[in-house]
Design a binder for these strands. Sequence first.
RNA 1: GCGCCGGUGGCUCAGCUGGAUAGAGCACCAGACUACGAAUCUGGGGGUCGGGAGUUCGAAUCUCUCCCGGCGCGCCA
Length: 577
Amino acid sequence: MASLKHYLNSVIGEAMAEATQSESCNANVITSSKPGFGDYQANGIMSEAKRHGMKPRDLAEQVIISLKQSLPSLIDRLEIGGPGFINIYLSDKEIKQRATRAIQEPTLLIPSAEVPIKVAVDYSSPNLAKEMHVGHLRGTIIGDAIVRVLERRGHTVIRQNHVGDWGTQFGMLITYMEEAVGANNDLPNALSDLESFYRDAKKRFDDDPAFAEKARLSVVKLQNGDKDYLSAWEIFIDESLRHCETVYEALDVTLTRNDLDAESRYNNDLSVIIEDLQGMDLLAESKGAKCVFLPEFSGKDGEPLPLIVQKSDGGYLYSTTDLAAIRLRQKMKVQRALYVVDARQSLHFQQVFAVARAAGFSDQDLSLEHISYGTMMGKDGRPFRTRSGDTVKLAELLEEAKQRAYDLVTKKNPTLPDSQRRDIAERVGIGAVKYADLSKNRTSDYIFDWSTMLSFDGNTAPYLLYAYARIKSILRKAPEKSYDAIQSLSDPEERALCLKMLQLGEIIEAVDRDCMPNQLCNYLYELSGLFMKFYENCPILKGEGSQTESRLALCRLTAETLQQGLELLGITPLEQM
RNA sequence: GCGCCGGUGGCUCAGCUGGAUAGAGCACCAGACUACGAAUCUGGGGGUCGGGAGUUCGAAUCUCUCCCGGCGCGCCA
């Protein structure tokens, strides 16, 4: 079952093509801007009429006449509005049928992609030398939501957690680890606070030249594959990954060890990349470093801007690894490579993508997309930090979310058993943090504010979760029956709610295309609002026989739609709260 | 200097490929519970969509220009 919008676009587009005697026309169908303008409106008449030298209203009229000859059962009637809009009114009967089918087969709510493809999504990507902090929150959450949507659409998705596990700092850490652990041999404890471990190591490195020298040597040994150093490194990485996994689990993020695409994986490819660039005559030496200069990039004072791929000391860079990674995607026949990374790196990705193209590491069949996002700010509008100005650890932020939610739940529902309140608080707290982030347009910076995200009013996780819990409460009270048919849409609230649910699919199509999860959030918020209105205006359990059954079916479908939507965002709804 | 992102009611944000009187929530004012869960709902006031010019039948949306803010721009990742 194609989405309503998709279907209407093709039906009306074809009628327009016939009327204008052209190959194809864009009907440009959108959901109507006002209730008085029908359920959907076709905006394409005006521009296509102009293109074919017709009067818009004449074209609209012809299109309607031609459609009426075999009117699709979905459409009840068509009207011309304003300068030449076609307002589309859908048939109640068809809405009921489609909704009923969706209740019986919930997967129908979201149509699969017509052409499934192979997509690689790079997201989260923490640096394993340190602990995850708030800077990793957005990418991790947004990336995970995108991945869930793409998979649900039937694409083959390869998650890629491009963790930083290689480079000079690991020499320092391993050297320090040997020292620190040598004494008491209690590694997990020594690494329990990665942040202070890193700080202490850095201090040793800065203060003691002998230590620094040893650290530098260990990097070389590591890169040459020295067994002892390698196993020490593995132990450190393993421990650090465990930290990440704790956070992923708390966040309910789908990343696992199987999704690692670590920097170290490309260690042996880096020199090859340089050789290849050299072979293609793309490499230039500038101030001792090996660079690629492309004419479309210029820096300060209009000077050519290089992408440095090898430092003057022979070391490789992030850019080198990225090029190697792109080349691997190409070999894996990935068709879309998404990089869910902070917006500040947009120039970096522009350059890397351009060089990859120029060098033939990627061809036109591989779409390279930087899915950028803005910075998380505090209430003062400056980057989010602790009062003392430190970066906030992600684990601590999530603990605070749970605690705040717990206080709230306790206030609202003091009689619930404590264990249940804890459980609810965890879902609400984490859900609130995730939803606050996902519901904003990812491209702009956003202000992290506890009171807004934990509010029960407005476009927040608690509001959606409450709507879901409310429905579940009704369904628990209803006599046990299946309730799988929508029989009546006589009240406008019923109809509006029902139609809205049939539109989940077209929203998911858009998220697949644009990677903007906030569109799904907006949709779910509107859906919940429509449910609340329906709930206030239409008695469900108190109604009469068949009406009650139909309304309970509507409730079931609403719960199903909300659940599917929330789960795609990585939020699991609660039966009770 | 060049480039990227942003500037929408007091605050936080929507506004999908340009479309018909710019939408929410908070805050403010006024209402609705002996309850299908009020963690909700109903109504009200409040906006030169940063300024200007242009393209168009039609611009918050596209183009140009200026102003303001954030970020990036050679050996960090």
